[in-house]
Write a protein that binds this DNA or RNA. Structure first.
Lengths: 339, 339
DNA sequence: GTGAAAGCGCTAACAA
DNA sequence: TTGTTAGCGCTTTCAC
């Protein structure tokens, strides 16, 4: 900028004024500055500007597990739209599996003075972040509430979704239901399992714990468990899956077997309506997780004052998979038969 | 930092040394600094540090259309892995549809002094970026070569992929093939159409231009075109789709009709092997687009000198969709029958 | 309307 | 090993 000032024959401050398009600058001087800028290839340094003026970095951070997972990608995409509307750049940090990595990434973003942080927690304890919040960096937690910390969060109604799912199966006459969930270290999974238990209790039925499988990591493990459960002397007549990955594994297994056990799985997924066998999903507005969190964050960033909020998004049951009947089918954009 | 120095009773520079963990500092002084840091809630300001030391911002930018699209999400996910390995944060900017927005986003990232830029171009002209490259900001273009600019790029072998696809159909006895591609403003689409034309020419067949449909934007438009083409007096017996979105539309239409026209579509997608009808995809390593580009970018960032490179990734034909036969099926992790 | 000087938070270069 | 000084690129303050 000093060079530009020299070449344009004006003071540093005048260049600054022209570059920022602020205040009134003499037409001719402004043009000399523009000419000199172009000649020298001058580009304003955003960081230096923010440093001196104490203005915000116009940057928020998003901590997320894995963008190649549709669930997280939809959140990130929705967040990006809100960020753009606020003329803010988005730094996306991948936490990986590890809670320590996650903390380290958060601290790095704080050193970079992001205006705020959106966190899809890997789990673990978040009390270490209290100091960062006190320092004035707003945070909103997505999909899981923070542990050991009072902060905003946007989550799903996991309990109700799972209870509805199990109730549907029970009402359809099933009493032996295979339950496949991921690790119970995650509150989401605990809530979903609790929803299923509640549905059984409400129906006056006993849930056979030998049909409850935890730590189901992915589709392949889910397939294996389906085969194991169905080979038992008192096999289940239906399955509940705690997430779409195990749902897909079960779906594949059941389709291969050609048997007609019922299936309800948490999480919808792309092209679920074209799966080769009917099943049901616990659906919710995936993008809303991102949109609402980001809007909440910007309210905090804009210094709006309100008590820590938890937004709970509703779920609904939707039938998916093809029925075997040919003929006009609903388009993806107006998905079918949701309750 | 000044406050920390005062509270710890040491000089500014000593605090700096302790914070950066560099050089040897007396044990006791270091502890006084740590204590003062904790007491005051001191957090190093990364931007100020980079400004003074002239070191890099340890940030790269990724310009991408839409993370909710599997193709882009896989690229972003792969880039994030490489960035993390280089201890670099990733700013993801969504270009939207608009070429002007894209340029504006790039300029913003340049003002932020990112170390480098990864761009999935929306199209349009990129000669305006020459000045930024000259300024020393390396750029790598993904999926499409830059227009009017010599820069690194990583692209697919669109021509060969499409030629292989059409040749497969021709060898299977098809001569009337419906061709559905998106706008020919995109070089990828032009290359794919050219690949199809070449396959016809090599087979000594004429391609009926009335079966070539351009500007097919998505699944719904594709479905409509399928219905139109099949209603004609000389309907096609097979379809080629220029991307997975139109492929999905055609697949849905053909499945609903219950007819057995052949289908080959560019781009694989999740759960394609569970689609209710056989078809074929032109597959490639989606993540490699991100991984290789990012690695190329970091070579540039590390001041390695080499001529502008274009990496072309190969494609292969893979059969997808269920065959109607029950029984053991290949797992997604070892996908079937790829040539 | 324009410019000179001071300083944002930090580190390089040097001195002690 | 520790401290002092100057200054990264920019904006503020205030005088002209």
């Amino acid at each position: 900028m000093t060079d530009v000032a020299r070449v344009a024959g004006v003071s540093l401050k005048t260049v600054s004024r022209v570059v920022n398009g602020v205040a009134t600058v003499d037409q001719e001087l402004a043009e000399r500055v523009h000419a000199a800028s172009a000649e020298l290839g001058f580009r304003a340094n955003f960081a230096a500007s923010a440093l001196r003026s104490g203005s915000s970095t116009a940057t928020i951070g998003l901590l997320i597990k894995d963008l190649s997972n549709e669930f997280y990608a939809n959140i990130a995409s929705a967040v990006a739209v809100v960020a753009k509307a606020h003329h803010t750049q988005l730094i996306t940090a991948h936490s990986g599996e590890n809670a320590e990595d996650e903390l380290e990434a958060i601290f790095d973003l704080c050193r970079r003075r992001v205006d705020g942080l959106l966190i899809v927690p890997t789990g673990g304890d978040h009390s270490a972040l209290k100091s960062e919040i006190d320092l004035g960096i707003p945070m909103v937690f997505i999909d899981r509430k923070p542990v050991g910390l009072a902060a905003d969060s946007v989550v799903l109604d996991n309990f109700a979704g799972a209870r509805d799912a199990a109730t549907r199966l029970i009402n359809d006459g099933h009493s032996r239901i295979g339950i496949l969930v991921d690790t119970l270290n995650m509150a989401t999974m605990r809530d979903r399992l609790q929803g299923v238990r509640t549905a059984f209790a409400e129906a006056g039925l006993a849930l056979d714990d030998s049909l409850v499988v935890t730590n189901v990591r992915g589709p392949i493990e889910a397939s294996i468990e389906v085969d194991r459960l169905l080979a038992s002397s008192a096999p289940p007549t239906a399955f509940f899956c705690g997430n779409n990955r195990s749902g897909i594994g079960v779906l594949r297994s059941l389709w291969q077997r050609g048997t007609n056990e019922a299936l309800v799985s948490f999480d919808d997924f792309q092209l679920s309506e074209l799966m080769p066998r009917p099943f049901t999903v616990v659906r919710y507005d995936n993008r809303a997780l991102g949109t609402i969190s980001a809007e909440l964050l910007f309210r905090r960033i804009n210094r709006e004052v309100f008590d820590p909020t938890t937004v709970v998004l509703p779920t609904e049951l939707c039938d998916r998979g093809i029925t075997g009947l040919r003929g006009p089918q609903p388009q993806a954009s107006q998905r079918a038969r949701c309750t």
